[in-house]
């Protein structure tokens, strides 16, 4: 029952994820037509508008077909891995993305580790010391973290550690593992700080709630050890809301990564997308946005599955989510 229930749940999530991706791809495709003016002009960018180029573009984007047919043909190309060529530099969008993805993934990985370890730990400590000095500090830190976007935090980090103290480089991504780590320390920290605030806030709130629950009191009444109560009773139950917020956290990561990359002039996907937007390079925008969206949807799917695994109430179909 358990296994088949699980498989059904994954199928159900997929049944939501696929249409979602289709709708997003449709939105992304429509960008060509959303841009002010003639789509050909939008796709042309700053290139000379000789009849030959225009004809190539019309053919490449099937602009003479009805809208929905254009979308179908475009989607077909995308599914085959053909994201087209950028207007500026006429490069394959896919290879630009591949080139830039490394920095973003590296950045997000370091931050994720910081967020999960430090965020959950701080939230736990604050909850255990509820009302104490550490707790008040953590709560205030949370408010500041949630209020400070990564680009603002980044500027302060840059100024203090890059300009005043001169400990870390102020731009670029570095080469090789260690150099890159050194270059990415401040950006990862800036990225982690804003997300960590959310994790700390949720962990603390749900820890406090769980600690007040009857089952914790009953476990204490039976003389269970503090360690057993903390891990098997409090932490396991308290982490469910944190996992539920996983989707929110992932979206926060990606959005803030864009800002961090711009702030620290890192050659990642985020700065690629901002470059593309600033230059209105439609094919490049479409390609990067699709990749981002795909990533978000996949991560959300994974988060949902993890959530299902740790909360038996969902697994056994008790709560309709």
């Amino acid at each position: 029952m358990m296994r088949s229930g699980m498989a059904r749940l994954i199928l159900m999530r997929l049944a939501i994820a696929v249409p979602l991706l289709l709708i997003i791809s449709f939105g992304v495709f429509s960008l060509v037509h959303l841009a002010p003016g003639d789509p050909v002009r939008a796709l042309l960018g700053t290139r000379p508008s000789d009849p030959e180029t225009l004809a190539t573009l019309r053919a490449r984007y099937h602009l003479d077909d009805p809208f929905i047919v254009q979308y179908g043909k475009w989607l077909g190309q995308v599914l085959q891995g053909d994201l087209g060529r950028s207007i500026n530099g006429n490069r394959l969008v896919l290879s630009s993305i591949k080139e830039r993805a490394g920095v973003t993934i590296y950045l997000c990985l370091i931050s994720t580790v910081i967020v999960l370890v430090a965020g959950i730990l701080l939230g736990m400590l604050a909850a255990f010391r509820r009302g104490g000095r550490l707790d008040r500090f953590v709560v205030m830190f949370g408010v500041f973290g949630i209020s400070s976007p990564a680009f603002v935090t980044g500027i302060f980090l840059l100024y203090v550690f890059g300009v005043v103290l001169g400990w870390f480089p102020t731009f670029g991504a570095g080469r090789g593992f260690l150099d890159r780590f050194w270059h990415l320390t401040l950006p990862s920290l800036a990225l982690a700080l804003s997300i960590m605030a959310i994790v700390v806030k949720i962990t603390r709130a749900s820890m406090i709630e769980v600690m007040d629950r009857d089952y914790v009191a009953f476990a204490r009444a039976r003389g269970m050890s503090a360690a057993r109560i903390t891990f098997a009773y409090i932490l396991r139950n308290a982490l469910i809301p944190v996992v539920t917020a996983g989707g929110l956290i992932v979206i926060g990561f990606l959005a803030n990564a864009i800002y961090v990359e711009v702030t620290f002039a890192l050659p990642g996907l985020g700065s690629l997308i901002v470059d593309a937007v600033q230059r209105r390079d439609i094919p490049l925008i479409q390609g990067t946005t699709l990749v981002f969206a795909l990533f978000v949807v996949i991560i959300n799917l994974v988060v949902d599955i993890i959530y299902t695994m740790i909360d038996p109430r969902i697994r056994f179909g008790k709560v309709a989510s």
């Binding site: 997003i24 989707g247 959005a255 864009i258 997308i273 600033q278």
Partner: peptide, 15 residues
């Protein structure tokens, strides 16, 4: 389920 900030950047940028 949409990455909101990305949507904002792209839509504002393109439109």
């Amino acid at each position: 389920a949409l990455p909101g900030p990305l949507v904002a950047i792209v839509v504002v940028g393109v439109v």
